[in-house]
């Protein structure tokens, strides 16, 4: 465990907590893409298949359970909670995310470490996580003004993977056998997708203005 990775995990945890706070405190999920939340639930379920088979550390197991439970509860809230579901921007959240799932599944069948069930689902989860933010970014551009908590949610979500890239660089130089190009490339693509969001987020922070994404 290195500081980059720990900071990355904490930033990821903060992003989830910010989202839970927004939904719980405002009883609203306006500006949040249900499709992105569903993709993230899928990412965690596909990646943590080894939750009960490989024990790595208490930290690892606890964090996996937290991510799975939180992503499923957010999806449940947005679909079933009577107050929250009313504020879902159904007509704006129209990204066809099933194509993302199909594409990533195909990609995992073609490009993986080993042709085993667990490895293919692991590669699938990495590819899917790289693109999972797309419905959310599209929704933000469509809904124009972004409320603070939603903006912070997306910011921390992007920052976590950027920190993971520093972690992979660090591990590449400190661990002889470390070389995981599937994670690294997916992580680079994922962080790049946040590029323009980070730019407008920084501008709004510098001007102390409301975050406005160009339509």
């Amino acid at each position: 465990m290195n500081i980059f990775r720990f900071a990355g995990d904490m930033t990821h945890l903060i992003s989830v907590l910010v989202l839970l706070l927004k939904i719980y405190a405002t009883k609203s999920c306006s500006g949040i893409s249900l499709k992105t939340q569903e993709l993230y639930a899928l990412v965690f379920l596909a990646r943590y298949l080894d939750l009960f088979t490989d024990f790595i550390s208490v930290y690892n197991t606890v964090m996996k359970i937290v991510f799975i439970m939180s992503s499923l509860s957010i999806v449940w809230c947005m679909r079933m909670h009577p107050m929250v579901r009313r504020s879902y921007d159904k007509e704006l959240d129209t990204f066809r995310h099933y194509f993302l799932i199909a594409g990533c599944l195909l990609g995992a069948l073609l490009v993986h470490e080993k042709f085993t069930f667990q490895e293919i689902f692991w590669a699938f989860s990495l590819y899917l996580e790289a693109v999972a933010i797309l419905p959310q970014l599209v929704l933000l551009q469509r809904s124009g003004n972004v409320d603070n908590l939603t903006g912070q949610y997306v910011f921390f979500l992007g920052a976590y993977r950027a920190l993971y890239i520093l972690n992979w660089i660090y591990r590449y130089f400190t661990e002889k056998h470390f070389g995981r190009w599937i994670s690294c490339i997916s992580g680079l693509v994922q962080t790049a997708l946040y590029g323009d969001f980070f730019y407008y987020y920084f501008i709004s922070w510098k001007n102390n203005a409301k975050l406005q994404l160009p339509a």
């Binding site: 990775r5 995990d9 990821h12 490989d54 790595i56 550390s57 991510f67 470390f178 070389g179 995981r180």
Partner: peptide, 10 residues
């Protein structure tokens, strides 16, 4: 081997 290294990541 490098197989288990990244699997220790979240």
């Amino acid at each position: 081997n490098n197989n288990n290294t990244v699997k220790d990541e979240l």
